[in-house]
């Protein structure tokens, strides 16, 4: 058979067989861009390492400093507690928001409007100064006789102010995330559960929530990472978190930059671990959605590992020609 001899054309003679070997398109611009970016990044890295003002020896000196460690612990506890409470309160708020009870849904809406509409920093300072507004916290209805009560400053220590401030703010965001997740589950799903005789609680817990979590988990992961960083705002009320611990140290020795590098490294370590955990949780709730024909039980995982190892050894035996 005759092959096409006309070069550099998309036309082919009806009697000829076009060639079958394919040559992919090349994009020299992409390589050039990559090269430029790499150059910039490398020179930045070089300057970071060689610039003496970073004072790397000081960074290493303070990396595991006991006060920094205590600050790190405070930041982690603050993040964990505020986030857990924020999620719990967020679920309640989302349930109220979606309730058919108009009073509940509009009160929940007003809450979101206020706590999402004012800056977290302002809210924290506000809670810090609550005693100016209400010197005494007491339980009574419409200014009636006090049932229980105590001085505001006695009840609200720094920890309580920080946790209340972060939690209330977080719950407003979580409420919207939870609501979005619940709305993402098609109505047909709960109908199918109900038709099987499942009651509303079973339907919610076993059918709606697990599917909603697939949508809820990724943004919640972002919120946790955000919370870890936003918790540094509590340094403004002098709670000794990671940032405030560093501030205490550099206000005495004036090594501002290296100490900021120290805490930045710790923030990065934490956010990296959290991102890793998040991707694992996401995979769990994504089951049944992204392909994955068989449920990966212990055996299946072993088998997959085995085949991967044997493939590797095979490719080592016969290295592919370059």
């Amino acid at each position: 058979m005759k092959t096409a001899t006309v070069t550099d054309s998309t036309r082919v003679d009806p009697s000829a067989t076009p060639p079958t070997e394919l040559v992919p398109m090349r994009y020299p611009g992409r390589r050039l861009a990559a090269l430029l970016v790499l150059l910039v990044a490398a020179s930045l890295g070089f300057s970071v390492v060689t610039n003496d003002n970073f004072e790397w020896p000081v960074v290493w000196e303070y990396l595991f400093n006991p006060e920094i460690m205590a600050g790190l612990r405070t930041t982690l506890v603050l993040t964990g507690v505020s986030m857990s409470l924020g999620i719990a309160l967020g679920i309640v708020l989302a349930a109220c928001r979606m309730s058919e009870n108009r009073v509940l849904s509009s009160l929940s809406g007003a809450y979101l409007w206020f706590f999402r509409g004012t800056p977290l920093l302002v809210q924290l300072i506000f809670w810090f100064n609550l005693s100016a507004l209400y010197p005494r916290l007491s339980l009574s209805l419409f200014g009636g006789p006090e049932i229980v009560g105590a001085a505001t400053n006695g009840v609200l220590n720094l920890w309580a102010v920080a946790i209340i401030g972060l939690t209330l703010n977080e719950s407003a965001y979580m409420a919207e995330i939870v609501r979005g997740g619940l709305l993402s589950v098609p109505k047909h799903q709960s109908e199918a559960a109900i038709a099987l005789g499942m009651n509303r609680w079973l339907t919610f817990r076993r059918v709606v929530l697990p599917q909603a979590l697939r949508v809820i988990v990724p943004p919640t992961g972002n919120q946790v990472i955000g919370m870890l960083k936003h918790s540094s705002l509590v340094s403004i009320i002098a709670l000794a978190d990671l940032l405030y611990s560093a501030q205490l140290i550099y206000s005495q020795n004036f090594r501002t930059i290296p100490l900021l590098v120290v805490i930045s490294l710790w923030y990065l370590v934490c956010t990296t671990v959290l991102s890793y955990a998040q991707s694992h949780i996401e995979r769990h709730y994504g089951r049944g959605v992204h392909g994955g024909a068989q449920r990966p039980g212990g055996l299946a995982k072993l088998r997959a590992l085995g085949s991967r190892l044997s493939q590797r050894s095979r490719s080592n035996d016969n290295p592919t020609p370059a």
């Binding site: 559960a193 697990p210 709730y285």
Partner: peptide
Amino acid sequence: GMVFQAYNLFPH
């Protein structure tokens, strides 16, 4: 027992 047009199996 009910069977729906869109099957409505629980995907998870």
